[in-house]
Write a protein that binds this DNA or RNA. Structure first.
Length: 255
DNA sequence: ATGGTGGCACCGCCA
């Protein structure tokens, strides 16, 4: 079982690289975030014509999440709204005995802003979703753009970014509270070292070549998922393709 | 050097 997550930063702009990556990697499931498209405008036919299934929940201009899969997913639920903001940020589904959660967590803008409160509320609100669907015995994955670098080795410059909304103590505490003792950061199961990032702010083009990035795209697993995890890696290849996203793919294989 | 990019929308917002 091969499962991946990718913040597309517009699924329509990123369609060529997503389809090429799917054709090359053939995952069972790809979770997408920031699709930035309403459901009526989602490029469903482009995926289906390439042999993929797709389910999605979007909105105009911002946010939006989707699952692309080889086989049809079941129990697709796009109704979760952990912060009560009405934004399209969560989609859940099942594949065989797996329960899959795809989230695009609010970025939060600035620590003093209402948007940051919305981010904290989103993390707190996920507890209801977990309580409803996930126990320590459920094979489950929670993946997506979580907009939190969990520890100081998960970003290039933890000193300058000490108060950044994606490394702020309150954001990290909200992430840790949501994680609880249920979820394990699967990338850290296999790789303990620094300098492994999934996002490079494209405001400064030199960030990517100099590897000044953030590890904010995560895949978390319950104990059965940890047991089944074989390998997990960050695939930066699409950053070398035409019109890359500012994020990269995080990919995991399970037995 | 206190800037810069990119997507989508529309005359700014969000990341």
């Amino acid at each position: 079982m091969k499962i991946a997550t990718f913040n597309a930063n517009s699924v329509r702009s990123r369609l060529p690289i997503v389809l090429k990556w799917l054709a090359d990697e053939r995952p069972d499931v790809l979770a997408l975030q920031e699709t930035k498209v309403t459901d009526d405008q989602f490029p469903r036919a482009d995926f289906e014509n390439a042999g993929w299934r797709v389910v999605f929940r979007g909105q105009k201009s911002y946010n939006g999440v989707a699952f692309v899969s080889k086989e049809p997913l079941t129990d697709v639920d796009t109704s979760w709204d952990p912060s009560g903001s009405g934004e399209a940020r969560v989609i859940t589904a099942r594949l065989k005995d797996w329960f899959l959660i795809n989230t695009y967590v609010p970025q939060g803008f600035e620590p003093d802003s209402p948007k940051f409160q919305n981010k904290l509320k989103f993390y707190a609100g996920l507890k209801d979703l977990f309580a409803r669907h996930v126990s320590a015995k459920t094979p489950a994955l929670w993946m997506g753009d979580l907009n939190v670098a969990p520890t100081e080795i998960d970003l290039n410059d933890p000193v300058r970014n000490a108060e950044h909304v994606c490394f702020h103590p309150k954001a990290r505490a909200a992430y840790e509270a949501a994680r609880g003792d249920l979820w394990t950061d699967l990338f850290r199961e296999k790789e303990k070292g620094p300098c492994h990032y999934t996002y490079w702010d494209y405001m400064i083009p030199a960030n990517f070549p100099r590897n000044r990035g953030w590890r904010i795209d995560l895949m978390l697993g319950t104990p059965p998922a940890v047991q089944r995890l074989q390998k997990i890696w960050i695939d930066k290849a699409p950053r070398g393709w035409e019109k890359p996203s500012d994020h990269t793919f995080l990919v995991a294989e399970f037995h």
